[in-house]
């Protein structure tokens, strides 16, 4: 925490960047990498899929940016944009917070789902957006993901999810928890049809999302240096009373511990997913 204060001060002293809003939402002409402080032209950064050219830091993507970087141009059709969150436990201010984030992100909730083409092949995708309530999962997020999986099952299509979430959404209580089970029953049905499910874990994927669909892809891949884990680092440090390794709960740490199939650089993501999907098509199976 103390380190964060210094970081912020430093940022202010070097405020050469016009209209800099937050570290992860590059605005203005130049953008500074929060990791190595390298300053690059925002348009160059955009062209590099928002990856720092010097240190490979992966900036957070919005759901729409992810779709743009992945799917064939103009092929994506979103679904269930009309679903709206309620305030089932009557938390003060919850509805307003949802509305604010909805305005900010242009999404109805913390996940964007739909069908589209990946290098010419139709797939169903779900992209979580951590700019919306930390990507947390409440009833609508659970329902949208479930419906997307159901659509994939019905159309016999691969399902690809990009996770980015702090976990279950506190303000919807146990209903949020149950979305873990809801998405799981849908995934089981999809899997029973012999269909492909690829989970791409991006920064951050923790808590209830990590402990449900994110971890049970036929293939689990992650972007470099993403934070991925079940429990929070501080909680663990308090329980085990020992210092955790620097790379604890990073993609690389998970790979080393056998929890991931691969760590894939964002620049290679489209290509990698294309290959994975192609290798699971009938043609690939027949022509070996």
């Amino acid at each position: 925490m103390i380190r964060d204060i210094f970081k912020r001060n430093k940022d202010k002293k070097e405020a050469t960047i016009p209209s800099k809003a937050s570290k992860d939402m590059p605005e203005g002409l130049m953008t500074k990498c929060p990791e190595c402080k390298h300053i690059s032209l925002t348009k160059d950064l955009q062209a590099d899929h928002k990856v720092c050219s010097k240190c490979d830091y992966h900036f957070k993507l919005t759901a729409h940016e992810r779709i743009a970087s992945l799917m064939d141009e103009g092929s994506f059709t979103s679904m269930d944009d009309h679903l709206k969150s309620e305030n089932p436990l009557g938390f003060p201010g919850y509805t307003e917070k949802i509305q604010q984030d909805s305005k900010k992100t242009g999404l109805n909730e913390a996940v964007l789902t739909g069908t589209g083409k990946l290098s010419g092949r139709e797939v169903v995708v779900a992209v979580m957006d951590s700019h919306f309530r930390m990507g947390s999962m409440g009833s609508v997020v659970g329902e949208k993901i479930t419906r997307a999986i159901e659509a994939a099952t019905e159309k016999k299509l691969p399902f690809i999810i990009f996770t980015a979430s702090g976990g279950a959404r506190m303000q919807e209580g146990v209903l949020s928890l149950m979305q873990m089970a809801k998405t799981s029953v849908a995934l089981k049905r999809h899997s029973n049809e012999g269909l492909l499910f690829v989970s791409v874990l991006t920064h951050p994927t923790t808590g209830g999302v990590s402990a449900s669909f994110a971890s049970v892809g036929d293939i689990n891949i992650a972007e470099p240096k993403a934070l991925i884990g079940f429990a929070g680092r501080r909680v663990i440090e308090q329980t085990v009373r020992e210092k955790l390794p620097e790379d604890f709960q990073t993609s690389e740490f998970l790979l080393a511990h056998g929890q991931l199939d691969a760590v894939v650089h964002r620049a290679k993501m489209r290509e990698t997913l294309t290959s994975i999907v192609r290798l699971h098509t009938k043609e690939a199976v027949q022509h070996g």
């Binding site: 679903l83 709206k84 969150s85 309620e86 009833s139 209903l175 149950m178 979305q179 089970a181 809801k182």
Partner: peptide, 9 residues
């Protein structure tokens, strides 16, 4: 489990 959740359409 599919039926669990509160939202509006």
């Amino acid at each position: 489990f599919k039926s669990i959740g509160i939202f509006s359409e």
